[in-house]
């Protein structure tokens, strides 16, 4: 075939490609085009996250009931250890402390599991990445979305706990929606960053549980930061309180719990919550995109 003379004979490969408008296979699209492609895959992202969610408990006898039972058991364990044995409530009344603790656990777990899923989003799905075309960001976003759906089940438990301890539904419960939306953006950004790191260094999956546990204890999941650190320099408590995990927990507690008033929130809390969300969502997305053509190398 190649011995037939043709007008293209003198051309180099690149020249030939340019002449017929061929593009480099697997090249990274521009950022705007990438966003457009990702939006085009929104149905896949949603279906994939839902499929993962259902597949999780499909072998269990109780099936999807575990979606609610798992967070409930989790909350019970933390209550037993920190509420009963260690008495970390530090003078907080019981009807505040228990919803305080449960909210903290659920909200932090949301970020924690998004990070853990993000680390394995690419490295754990190499088969998929090497078989089909789609913007790779679809995977971490899909996993973050799966965690959001998981959290919605936990929210059911949280509502029951709140009502059980005397915090009844009121107008401020509506603040849950923007608080969750901002946290979801933050988590997605974080998952995107983790996915890029995890694809280059799969070992992160072993390391992250320790990092996440440290972060959890430093974010006041089971104690109030200002009360616990009252005798330490002010800046320590400030830094801990401004960290995104603590901010999103505090917002949720403020929205839900009657006895947890605005005096517990750091100043400008919504601005900070929005800032973290915007910074990580945009930064994480761009950071992930920059390496788009390299995902899939073993």
């Amino acid at each position: 075939m190649s011995d037939r003379p043709s007008p293209d004979d003198g051309l180099s490969a690149a020249g030939l490609a340019a002449k017929y408008g061929l593009a480099v296979s697997g090249a990274r699209p521009r950022l705007v085009e990438y966003v457009r492609q990702l939006w085009g895959r929104r149905h896949f992202i949603l279906a994939f996250s839902q499929a993962k969610l259902t597949a999780q408990y499909s072998q269990a006898k109780l099936g999807q009931l575990w979606q609610v039972a798992t967070p409930l058991l989790n909350a019970a364990v933390y209550f037993f250890i920190f509420g009963v044995i260690l008495k970390a409530d530090r003078g907080m009344p019981r009807e505040v402390y228990i919803p305080f603790l449960v909210t903290g656990v659920f909200v932090f777990t949301f970020t924690q599991s998004s990070v853990m899923a993000g680390v394995r989003a690419i490295s754990g799905n190499l088969g998929l990445v090497r078989a089909l075309h789609f913007p790779r960001a679809a995977l971490p976003v899909s996993f973050a979305l799966q965690q959001l759906q998981q959290l919605l089940f936990s929210m059911l438990v949280l509502f029951i706990v709140s009502i059980g301890f005397g915090s009844y539904p009121k107008a401020s419960w509506l603040l849950i929606v923007p608080a969750l939306a901002l946290q979801f953006l933050f988590n997605t950004g974080l998952a995107l960053i983790m996915a890029r790191w995890g694809s280059a260094t799969p070992d992160l999956a072993q390391l992250m549980p320790f990092v996440m546990r440290t972060w959890m204890y430093a974010s006041g999941v089971m104690f109030s930061i200002p009360v616990m650190l009252a005798d330490k320099p002010v800046w320590v408590a400030d830094v801990l309180q401004w960290n995104p995990a603590a901010i999103y927990m505090d917002l949720m507690r403020f929205a839900l719990i009657d006895g947890y008033g605005p005096e517990n929130l750091p100043p400008h809390v919504w601005a900070v919550a929005g800032g973290w969300a915007a910074l990580f969502a945009v930064g994480g997305f761009v950071y992930f995109w920059q390496s788009e053509e390299r995902y899939g190398r073993g």
Binding site: S25, G26, A131, L132
Partner: peptide
């Protein structure tokens, strides 16, 4: 897989017209 753009090349290039696809969805 390299032609499909699924495996990054170490060196050299693959140019394609449109999006080549592998027949297979097992992984999904």
């Amino acid at each position: 897989r390299a032609i499909a753009g699924l495996l990054p090349a170490e060196s050299g290039h693959v140019y394609t017209d449109g999006q080549p696809s592998l027949l297979g969805v097992n992984a999904a």
